[in-house]
């Protein structure tokens, strides 16, 4: 299947890239940027709407400053997305490379396992894993890796199957290069572009999934504000305090959008005719 990608005017891309960078910077500098202590409560100052003096984005159920919590909340999606996506790529690529390269029965078994894994509703997998392991940054990352790695196995394995019959691989084998070397030095570089493209788009999915996990109460930590948890808390106050659910949700949306804009652009540049249906989403 061939598909031409969208190419957005560079201005959008620049803006999106700028937004992504800003997100990273805010995530790293969060403790110094927040105007107030994100956990400081003031029970007499609850549910103040945005633009209240001293609280640009209002206060929440316990009178905490929403803006400060939003800033402090950038950290979790940033860390989770980076860690979960790189680990999934690492595992997925390794397994896919092995499976495709070795072939035969091993390949069949691995691919059936992967199919089963992909048939499992992945949000359920994440939920189950967090439930088993308990909440916490590491466990959420593990749960996301567990639910995402199989995507890369499929992608990589398919490409390896065709690559290993190509001339440059065959000739390398002929002159006695070891299998490991062929896999790492010859095949791996050839598949990295498509992996990079999928991984960039997966960042958006992972950020949204982390938010859904927090939203379902299976998030990173209760002491650390996260966007998903803020959204979940705010949902009960939809009618009386709209800003509580709106603001963190908008933050998730904007970051995912920016990442996707950049991801799409990278894809267009690297491989204008890449396959589109490689990912589940």
């Amino acid at each position: 299947m061939t598909a031409r990608r969208f190419s957005l005017p560079p201005l959008y891309v620049t803006l999106a890239l700028g937004f992504c960078l800003a997100f990273l910077v805010v995530g790293i500098l969060a403790p110094w940027l927040a105007p107030l202590d994100p956990n400081a409560q003031s029970l007499l100052n609850r549910l103040r709407p945005p633009l209240t003096e001293g609280h640009l984005l209002g206060t929440d159920v316990l009178g905490r400053d929403v803006l400060s919590r939003l800033i402090a909340g950038t950290r979790v999606p940033m860390v989770v997305a980076t860690a979960a996506v790189s680990l999934s790529v690492l595992i997925g690529v390794a397994v896919g490379l092995f499976s495709g390269y070795v072939g035969g029965l091993v390949d069949t078994v691995i691919m059936r396992l992967t199919d089963a894994w992909l048939a499992f509703p992945f949000i359920l997998l994440a939920i189950a894993f967090v439930a088993v392991l308990g909440p916490g940054l590491t466990n959420v990352i593990i749960a996301l890796v567990v639910s995402q790695w199989a995507v890369y196995v499929r992608l990589v394995r398919g490409q390896v199957l065709s690559l290993k019959e190509r001339e440059f691989v065959l000739s390398a084998r002929m002159i006695g290069v070891s299998h490991l070397r062929i896999a790492v030095q010859h095949i791996l570089p050839a598949i990295m572009p498509s992996v990079t493209i999928v991984a960039t788009l997966e960042i958006g999915i992972v950020i949204a999934t982390e938010a859904s996990l927090s939203f379902l109460g299976l998030g990173v930590s209760a002491s650390q504000p996260t966007w998903g948890a803020m959204l979940a808390e705010g949902r009960a106050y939809l009618a009386s305090a709209w800003w509580l659910a709106t603001i963190p949700g908008a933050a998730v949306f904007l970051v995912v959008l920016a990442v996707n804009v950049v991801g799409n652009h990278i894809r267009d540049m690297v491989d204008p005719r890449s396959a589109g249906a490689a990912t589940k989403a």
Partner: peptide, 28 residues
């Protein structure tokens, strides 16, 4: 180009947040 931008918006929208926002505006 407008369509492409729309598609990206739809693609990036966390489904549950979209749901909540529609409830907020259209239902509540």
């Amino acid at each position: 180009q407008v369509t492409s931008a729309l598609a990206l918006f739809g693609y990036s929208m966390p489904t549950f947040w979209l749901g909540i926002m529609m409830i907020l505006v259209l239902s509540v």
